[in-house]
Amino acid sequence: MNVLEVDDLSGGYSATPVLRGLTFSIPEGGVVALLGPNGAGKTTTLRALTGGLKRTSGRMSFGGEDLASIRPEGAARLGIAHVPEGRGTLADLTVEENLRVGGYLLGRGTALTEKLDVCFGYFPILHERRKQKAGHLSGGEQQMLAISRALMLQPRLMLLDEPSLGLAPKITQRLFETLGVINKEQETAMLLVEQNASLALDLASRAFVLESGSVVLGGDASDIRDDEELRRAYLGY
């Protein structure tokens, strides 16, 4: 059973198509890496899934529901959480307020505090800094905050755009380990866009390589990781 199916998707921001017949899927609870060079359409794919794209043809469905006329607010309601590139944290709000914003759909009940505790469990540093303004956090902490904020939605699918961007290798390593734990414990499926292909392939179960808006290679992450020739041809390492 796939949580997400994208079938022959084409579209872009204006008349220029960015995605050209894109097809891939994400199994329930799985982690899928979306790789490829700059400008291949990876970020655009994530935007398409939350309603930020003009679709010209093709189908997207999430848990059996058609995403044809999806809007950002609606995506959240369906259970798709987007961690955008550059993180999109609310700099003027405190860490805890950021998380509460993320948990808007949970309402006022105990579900909210429970979720807060779950986030603080994965990232204890955020608990320490919960009264601080998000703008004063380090890059790594902001990324943790962005992921936690997405987690507050209790999403079935989390879209992660370049989580390693601008972070020190050591911090990135730890962050990805935590993402793995979150994926297992919360059964959250993840669509991971990442420049750091080797890191992404370690975390993901499946991977797709995009070029010019369509998939040029897809398969088990381990197969791609272990095949030096494929790696060199498509991922350049």
């Binding site: 950002p72 307020e97 808007y104 904020r149």
Partner: peptide, 16 residues
């Protein structure tokens, strides 16, 4: 406050 400072982020959290 969230909607004022970052409408896109607030929208992604499902806020009207």
């Amino acid at each position: 406050r969230a909607a004022a400072s970052q409408p896109a982020s607030a929208r992604m959290a499902g806020a009207p």
